[in-house]
Structures are given as structure tokens and as C-alpha cells.
């Protein structure tokens, strides 16, 4: 299954890194959308279906935690797979996210780390012919 993905980070450079890493990971991708904060992301999610959201925590306007809480309140999106890609290092916060069914990838990350997290959360399989396995 080709994934439609929304990447949410206030850093355009980090969004580019996440998207490039996703493409290198061997995962089959459909549409890849971008947003600079949680509010922009919610606007996109109101108009477009995506299979997976990759989001940062520390963002202006609406941060990642507020965004997750907002998404979970929307019945059609309450099961949407989400992976936090962040510099967050507190095991207390990371465990809280994982208990809520949110994936977590720590910055800096490798293609393998990102791919494993996506596979674990969505159950998709990797197109081995395009996977280089490393970053």
C-alpha cells in the first residue's frame, strides 16, 4: 500500500530531511504533504485524507501535543497513525506518547529508524527493490 503522508515541522529544512529519508527508506509513498505547525496541519487534514502523520512537538501557533489532542477528538481521524519526530529525550514524555499509541523517532534519525517506526505503526511492507537500508 502506498502511503499518503503529512509531515509537520516548523523547520522547512527538517521537513525536507524527513521527506528525503522517507523516500530513501524503501516505503512506497503516494502524496507527501507539508505543514509548518499544528493549525496548518489540521486545516490540511480537514480537506485531504492521509494515512500517516509525522510531526514535531515544539512548534509555534499549535504544538505537536495540542495537535495530537485535537486530532484524537475528531471521530474520522481518531485512529490516524501518528509518529512524533522530535529532539524530545525525556523517557517520561516519550512513554506517555507511546501509551497513547503514538510512535516516536528521536532526532537525528536514520532511514532505518524511520522505516521501522512506520512499519510498526501502520503495518505496511517495504518495497525491497527501492530500499537501500541505510542513510
Amino acid at each position: 500500500m502506498a502511503l499518503s503522508v503529512l509531515v509537520v515541522d516548523d523547520s522547512s529544512v527538517m521537513r525536507s530531511i524527513v521527506i528525503r529519508t522517507l523516500r530513501m527508506s524503501g516505503l512506497e509513498l503516494n502524496e507527501v504533504l507539508q505543514a509548518g505547525n499544528g493549525k496548518e496541519a489540521l486545516e490540511i487534514l480537514g480537506k485531504t485524507w492521509v494515512d500517516l502523520v509525522l510531526l514535531d512537538i515544539n512548534m509555534p501557533v499549535m504544538n505537536g501535543i495540542e495537535m495530537i489532542e485535537s486530532i484524537r477528538k475528531i471521530p474520522e481521524l481518531s485512529d490516524l497513525p501518528m509518529i512524533v519526530v522530535s529532539t524530545e529525550s525525556s523517557t517520561t514524555r516519550i512513554d506517555t506518547l507511546k501509551q497513547r499509541g503514538i510512535g516516536f523517532v528521536h532526532k537525528p534519525f536514520t532511514a532505518e529508524m524511520l522505516r521501522n517506526s512506520v512499519i510498526q505503526l501502520t503495518g505496511v511492507t517495504v518495497n525491497e527493490t527501492t530500499s537501500d537500508g541505510s542513510f
Binding site: 523547520s11 529544512v13 529525550s89 525525556s90 523517557t91 517520561t92 532526532k107
Partner: peptide, 25 residues
């Protein structure tokens, strides 16, 4: 943008060493 992100990630990787890995910053 790149400069800010690098400093941000350095900070995030350093913080668990200040107190312990459970500490919330």
C-alpha cells in the same frame, strides 16, 4: 533554518545527561 535546527537537536541530545533520562525539559 538549518543552524537553528542543529542547535535545537544538540540541545535535545544533551539534556538527558544533565539530570537523568526521566527529567522533563
Amino acid at each position: 533554518d538549518a543552524l537553528k535546527e542543529v542547535c535545537n537537536v544538540i540541545c535535545g541530545n544533551l539534556l538527558p545527561n544533565l539530570i537523568n533520562e526521566d527529567a522533563v525539559f
